[in-house]
């Protein structure tokens, strides 16, 4: 599903490459953790897959197609196949919880009559149906992360990118969220899950990729936390 070949990403003006010669293959339907200290390059890798960034060298492939030549409307189509939880949530502050989630459906042109059912169903899954009219700033950080997750899964994307989605959650809520992600994964969605929460990676074992200062230093098919 996702393939990286000799991918290097250098941000302009940065002394060191954020990602350095990464080779990687993630299969369709896999659940993969991406772990590493902060600054190791986890978000950068996600941004490459979303085509928010373009590699300085090397190629990123999705379903066998290189993303490099994608422009304009093609990028938009590409992103519609991906549900992403951003590290900084990126919720729209002037929209309610419901509207934030519905926004993902609106943007990709789902007819309005389908919104209510789909939005309420995912809000129920993340335990926030009672907060559907609240504004993001009226929610705790953990609740905001759950709204972001709801927005990422509401469109049933074939690929889910989660950038530290449990960073602000207590262990119990984390567990619920991971169960939700796992059940989405079992229905066929490929999941890439960036985290540095040891307990999560240890408790729900999946293939684990470890980044250290931009290099892929470990690819453990059976999982486990070893930084």
């Amino acid at each position: 599903m996702i393939q990286l070949r000799h991918v290097t990403l250098e941000y302009p003006g940065a002394a060191q490459a954020a990602l350095d010669d990464i080779n990687l293959h993630i299969l369709k339907g896999e659940f993969v953790y991406l772990i590493g200290h902060s600054g190791a390059g986890k978000s950068s890798l996600m941004n490459l897959i979303l085509k928010r960034e373009t590699p300085s060298r090397g190629e990123v492939y999705l379903s066998g197609e290189s993303l490099r030549k994608y422009r304009g409307g093609r990028v938009a189509l590409h992103r519609r196949r991906i549900g992403m939880v951003f590290q900084d949530n990126l919720l729209l502050q002037n929209l309610s919880v419901f509207d934030n989630v519905a926004f993902a459906l609106r943007v990709i042109g789902v007819p309005q009559r389908e919104w209510a059912a789909r939005v309420l169903s995912v809000l129920a899954q993340v335990g926030l149906e009672s907060r559907q009219s609240a504004l993001p700033r009226q929610l705790s950080l953990g609740e905001q992360q759950r709204v972001a997750l709801a927005r990422a899964v509401v469109s049933d994307p074939p690929l889910l990118l989660l950038d530290e989605p449990t960073g602000n959650l207590d262990p119990d809520t984390s567990g619920e969220i991971i169960r939700l992600v796992q059940s989405t994964n079992l229905r066929g969605t490929t999941v890439v899950f960036a985290t540095h929460a040891r307990e999560v990676v240890e408790q729900f074992r999946h293939r684990t990729l470890t980044l250290r200062r931009g290099k892929l230093v470990r690819d453990d098919p059976f999982g486990g936390y070893a930084l």
Partner: peptide, 16 residues
Amino acid sequence: RVEIEVMRLLGARRGF
């Protein structure tokens, strides 16, 4: 700009 960036990241077309 934040809203526009979010729209783009969620896959909104330019016309939208």
